[in-house]
Write a protein that binds this DNA or RNA. Structure first.
Lengths: 136, 136
DNA sequence: CTTTTATCCTATCGTTTTAGTAGATTAATT
DNA sequence: AATTAATCTACTAAAACGATAGGATAAAAG
């Protein structure tokens, strides 16, 4: 399941991209437009800012804005920041690899074999989609 | 993340398929061979039996066995029983569809658009893999 | 018919994750 | 100085996850 965090984060990014100009947009406006709890969205936008997707400005006329062009924001990086590993098991993860406790031999593991394919297919989708693609 | 339930269930099915003959295999043997908590595995095998993947026999010489040929067991059906929906959001699920609370228009939703592609790519993998493919 | 073996079934439980909420702080405008 | 809006820390209710406990049932062996 996709977490609400990721879902809301994607929607917020898409909204910012659809607004277009680089004027800051307030949390309240995004929350209202996308039907998201404002306080929850606050924390999500914060992690998006800390990870280099958004810039922010305080005080009147403040808000959040995209730092990069929508076409330069890959879904792979967004998903990794919001949702975590793209792989469904750590033993097939490119960026978050971990060996399984059980499973003496990955090469022989049926789950490993299947999840490698699932990872690759998901990666291909995320690599072929930028934020710009989602709002067109 | 793939749940342990699904992971263990897949491993158990793969083990039964690799054993080959239709002789019942005891839970204890599967659990030991795959490094799984026996009690937990018990409940997993039970749901696999209830969903038509396994047959069982009680008493001495009893255990679990595959009902169908490994090549006739599609990963789509296994995943749906063990893990639930293949889609990451209910609004793009074929078998477990649900409308989102937020989101007035699915056609306009950026998340919907992305998750449709992810679902389709995962489906293609699961449809192209039978239990027989996993053990070869 | 009794003992053994192994599945079947229900209930419970501790931990972690999820999805928030509350409230005070900081910084930029007006 | 007042207002506005992001920032930060801490807390919490509810659900999901990964088991565990213990007895019931059924089949086979003696």
């Amino acid at each position: 399941m996709l977490s609400k965090k990721t879902k809301y984060g994607l929607k917020a990014l898409a909204y910012l991209a659809s607004v277009g100009d680089k004027e800051p947009v307030q949390i309240a406006e995004i929350a209202k437009h996308e039907n998201i709890s404002q306080k929850f969205l606050e924390s999500i936008l914060l992690t998006l800012r800390r990870n280099g997707f958004l810039g922010s400005k305080k005080g009147k006329g403040g808000g959040y804005y995209l730092i990069k062009e929508p076409k330069d924001i890959l879904m792979t990086s967004v998903m990794r920041v919001l949702e975590g590993p793209i792989a469904m098991v750590p033993c097939v993860s490119l960026n978050f690899y971990e060996k399984c406790d059980d499973c003496p031999d990955e090469g022989e593991c049926s789950v490993h074999k299947l999840m490698l394919q699932v990872r690759d297919s998901a990666l291909e989708v995320y690599r072929n989609n930028t934020l710009a693609d989602l709002i067109s």
